[in-house]
Amino acid sequence: MAKTITLRVFRGDANGGTTQDFRVETFPGMVVLDAIHVIQKEQDPSLACRWNCKAAKCGSCSAEVNGMPRLMCKTRVDALPTDKPIEVFPLKTFPVIKDLVTDVSWNYEVAKKIQGLTLADEGSKEPLRMQQIDVDRVQEFRKCIECFLCQNTCHILRDNERKDVFFGPRQMIRLASLEMHPLDVADRTQFLKEVAGVGACNITKCCTEVCPEHIQITDNGIIPLKERVADTYFDPVRKLLRWVGGRK
C-alpha cells in the first residue's frame, strides 16, 4: 500500500535559506531523487536539483540526506526512518546556487593544477602497452564518478574550510592514479606535499565511507601517497641510500 512521507527540503541560495516540507506518496523502490522529482512535477517546479543518469554513475545528484552525504538516486526511501521528515539538504562544503544545487567548480579549478599523465616518449606513435598486474591498482581509481561526496564530507574542507591547503580526497585519488601509473614518469611528490597538501589529511576515512563507488580512497590512495612523501621527506635512511647511490 502506498505510504505518504514528508520531505524537508532546503530552499534558498548563498544569501540564506529555509526548509520547506512536502508530503509525497511513495511507490515501491522509490529513491530520494524520485521523491524530489515528484515534488517538482506535482507541487513545486521551481525546486532546483542537479541530476542526470539516475543510476549512480553520473555523480550529479549528491546531497545530504538526513545529514549524511549520499547520492539521492541511490538512497531508497524505505531504508530511511519515515516517522520523522526526511531532510534533504545541499552539499555543505560548497556554495549553494539554488536549493539543492551547489557550485562545485572549485574541484575543477584545483584539478587543472595537477600535472597530467607524462610519458617518457611523448612523441611516440607506438600504442601504450601495459600488463594487467600494473593496471589493477590504478583501475580502482578510474571508477570515480566525481560526485564530490568525499570532498563534501572531508572535515578539512567542510569544517576547517582549508581549501587553500588541501585539494581533497577526489584530487588525491587523481594524483594516486597518475603517480602509480606504470608509464608515467613525472614526480609529483613535492607537489603533493607543498601544493596539494596530502599532509593535511589525518586519515579519518570519511571519504572512503561515503564513496558510492566503494573506492578505498584512504587505504589505496591517500596513505600510499603519504608514504611516498615520507620516502622523500621523512626517511633519513632512504635519503642516505639515495645519496650513496648518487640519486636525487
Binding site: 524537508r8 532546503f10 544569501n15 540564506g16 529555509t18 545529514g67
Partner: peptide, 12 residues
Amino acid sequence: ATVTGSGTLPES
C-alpha cells in the same frame, strides 16, 4: 518549516 536570517543556512 524553518526560517533563518539572511546569510545563514540551516543545517541538516
